[in-house]
Simulated assay, not measured.
Amino acid sequence: MSKPLLGIIIIFCLFCSVSHAQKLGDESYGISSFYAQYFYQKPTSTGEILQRNQYTAAHMTLPFGTMVEVTNLANKRFVIVRINDRGPFKPGRIIDLTENPAKWLKMTNKGLTKVRLKVVGFDGDIMLEPYDSLRLVAPPHFEPKFYQKTKLKYHRYYRLKKNWQKRKYPNLKHRRLKVNSYLRRLSKQRIKAKKVAKEAQKTKIIPPKKSK
């Protein structure tokens, strides 16, 4: 193989890897399906044995270990699964779920349903957590012959989890060490302050009397 052709292939592979790189919070839409009974108790692309009671899924481009929130657009039910396999290989489908998440989304009767995918974590760790908040849709409106009630609607937002620093990522190792050293120094300072306070309580210092 010639060197120019080899360079073109390497650049193309790098471009593909960059184009498929996912960021936290990325969303995509498509059709979801679930595994057939034939695939259970068989190894996936990562070597894990596919179990029907585990919340895992197959995706064509997402890295293994990515945590994805799958929302059924028909009934707004959602579930979080971990990517550990490649597929589905049929055109038009975006994700393949195991039996438990498919039952939770209530899609086992139809087989296929439109879903929204949202990346909420990596390496098996959930970093984004959803929470519901009321939002004003229509304010109250008063007229002599007409009254419109206030319309409120729940909207789902996302925020970083409180313990996101505890992720097992190699690039955050130095940060964890800095946090741990700071907490150790702080605890030592608190222990010293408590000791000083106890000693001060035991030895009551009486001020000298002023001479007349």
Score class of each variant (00 low, 15 high):
residue 194 K to D: 02
residue 158 Y to F: 09
residue 33 S to F: 03
residue 9 I to M: 02
residue 182 Y to Q: 05
residue 207 P to K: 10
residue 81 V to K: 00
residue 168 K to V: 10
residue 110 K to R: 06
residue 58 A to Y: 11
residue 133 S to R: 06
residue 133 S to Q: 12
residue 18 V to N: 12
residue 153 K to G: 14
residue 193 A to H: 01
residue 67 M to F: 00
residue 185 R to V: 02
residue 79 V to Q: 12
residue 11 I to Y: 09
residue 48 E to W: 01
residue 8 I to M: 07
residue 197 A to Q: 12
residue 211 S to G: 05
residue 17 S to M: 12
residue 108 T to P: 01
residue 185 R to A: 05
residue 124 G to A: 09
residue 121 G to F: 05
residue 31 I to D: 02
residue 196 V to W: 09
residue 46 T to S: 08
residue 178 K to W: 05
residue 68 V to K: 06
residue 198 K to W: 09
residue 190 R to V: 08
residue 30 G to F: 08
residue 41 Q to W: 08
residue 41 Q to V: 01
residue 28 S to G: 04
residue 132 D to L: 09
residue 111 G to F: 02
residue 54 Q to W: 07
residue 150 T to Q: 07
residue 152 L to D: 10
residue 19 S to Q: 11
residue 23 K to H: 07
residue 203 T to Q: 09
residue 104 W to T: 14
residue 66 T to S: 12
residue 41 Q to H: 15
residue 163 N to L: 09
residue 123 D to Q: 12
residue 21 A to V: 01
residue 115 V to A: 04
residue 65 G to L: 03
residue 138 A to Q: 12
residue 75 N to Y: 11
residue 166 K to R: 14
residue 8 I to H: 08
residue 27 E to Q: 10
residue 50 L to C: 01
residue 78 F to T: 13
residue 102 A to P: 03
residue 157 Y to H: 09
residue 107 M to F: 07
residue 205 I to R: 08
residue 164 W to C: 06
residue 54 Q to P: 02
residue 45 S to M: 00
residue 43 P to F: 04
residue 129 E to Q: 10
residue 164 W to S: 06
residue 99 E to N: 04
residue 163 N to Y: 05
residue 37 Q to Y: 00
residue 183 L to F: 06
